[in-house]
Simulated assay, not measured.
Amino acid sequence: MGTALLAAFGLWTALVQLVDVRPVGQNGTDVGFAAFNVWFHGLTGVHMVLYAITDWLGLVPVAVCLGFGAMGATQLVRRRSLFAVDPDLLLLGVHYVLVAAAYLVFEAFPINYRPIPIDGVMEASYPSSTTLLVLGVMPTLAYQIARRSKSIQAKVAVVAFVAAFSALMVAGRLVSGVHWATDIAGSVLLAAGLFAMYRYAVAQADARLTTARLEG
């Protein structure tokens, strides 16, 4: 599934640069799926208050990253070996690095620019960085709590929070008017693909640990 989603993201990225590309962006910059994107942007308008709210709420997934980073660092200090840290936490660190790397790559090589300037500056828009951050991090919170907590109530509460928060953030970013609709779609595909690959890697690590224990 992860491979399929990442392939879909690659295809979507290509289509964004090939289908109905017209100079409808800032300063005449090109935008793919121009007719749809311009129509949707006109439908939603621009809501800078909503943009500011979703921007500040982007600190929530950052706090999640720091929390798991602190957990991994604590295990490293206590167990005195990187390889003694829980494999799912090590893989989580790799996952977060990949999410950050994806952001940096598309910042360095912009596919398109935001529909409007932010503080007078043209900023890269594809894929939506806030959407990528939220969907790349928040599902890992639900997944880790499901693995580590014995409380059914805690698991349900965290899953409900993650689902509601993620949905509100994606919807908020979509209708705030600071991205083209296709930018949001690209982020959803990329984040979902990376998360699926993370879950697969953890499943493989779990299988190896189980085999090692049985053989031991």
Rank of each mutant, 00 (worst) to 15 (best):
L132W: 07
Y126S: 02
V134L: 06
R147F: 02
M138D: 09
T140A: 07
L135P: 10
T131F: 02
A146P: 01
Q144A: 02
L141F: 12
L132C: 01
L141Y: 08
I118A: 03
M122V: 09
S129V: 12
G120F: 15
T140S: 13
P117D: 10
I145A: 02
V121C: 01
P117S: 04
Q144K: 01
I145V: 15
Q144E: 13
Y143W: 14
A146D: 14
V137L: 04
R148S: 10
Y126T: 04
T140P: 04
S128M: 06
I145R: 09
I118L: 14
I116W: 05
T140V: 14
M122G: 04
L135R: 11
P127W: 10
A124K: 09
G136Q: 06
R147L: 14
V134P: 11
Y143G: 00
S129L: 10
R148Y: 01
S128C: 13
Q144V: 06
Y126Q: 08
V134W: 07
S128D: 01
A146S: 13
P139Q: 08
S128Y: 05
D119A: 13
V137W: 10
S149P: 04
L141K: 09
T130Y: 08
T131K: 02
G136R: 12
S129F: 14
G120S: 11
L133Y: 01
Y143H: 07
L135G: 10
M138R: 04
E123N: 09
V121A: 05
A146I: 00
E123S: 06
V134E: 06
V121G: 00
I145Y: 01
G136K: 11
I118K: 08
I118S: 01
T130M: 03
S149Y: 06
I118V: 15
Y126G: 02
R148T: 14
